[in-house]
């Protein structure tokens, strides 16, 4: 955001999340919200990541473990389906991969620069030993 001078902003260092009025924000999805420039939704922490999670929908069972445990609101779920990852807000913590119960996992960490198509092409196959109950405890 532009570094305004002392006379250029709201008094009391007050911030507004939205431009204009919002009703029932609890049932309004992010894409339909009038976020103001002051909402951190409009910012990005993509440069925090060294590794990124990639999503392979072929194996996903839409269990939503990744959604519930993502600390950064970066698992995009719509109509109970896992849709993808919000790479503006994902910090690359890797929790989603850890909690993914499928075999093989539907989410895996890759180097930040990894090409998605290449990653999907080399996705591991189903392992014989069933790991589907709980995430591993390292």
């Amino acid at each position: 955001m532009e570094k305004k001078g002392w006379d250029g902003f709201e008094i009391g260092a007050m911030l507004r999340t939205f431009d204009g009025a919002v009703q029932d924000i609890a049932t309004t999805l992010p894409e339909n919200r009038p976020y103001s420039q002051s909402s951190s939704f409009t910012a990005s922490v993509a440069d925090w990541r060294i590794e990124k999670p990639l999503f392979n929908k072929d194996y996903c069972i839409d269990c939503q473990f990744c959604w519930i445990y993502c600390p950064d609101m970066s698992i995009i779920s719509r109509d109970k389906k896992m849709v993808g990852i919000d790479f503006d807000h994902c910090k690359g913590c890797g929790i989603c991969v850890q909690v993914c119960p499928t075999n093989p996992k539907s989410l895996l960490m890759f180097p930040e620069q990894k090409d998605e198509e290449a990653a999907l092409a080399e996705w591991p196959k189903k392992e014989k030993k069933d790991q589907s109950e709980e995430p591993k405890e390292d």
């Binding site: 924000i25 951190s40 939704f41 922490v45 519930i68 600390p71 109970k80 807000h89």
Partner: peptide, 28 residues
């Protein structure tokens, strides 16, 4: 959990909590 996943979060990303911070999971 599928039901729950239709929630529209009222807590936003690009906050400055550490990667993997449980605070955020609790707040959500």
């Amino acid at each position: 959990l599928k039901d729950f996943s239709t929630s529209a979060d009222r807590f936003e990303g690009a906050n400055l909590l550490c990667p993997g911070c449980a605070h955020s999971i609790i707040v959500r």
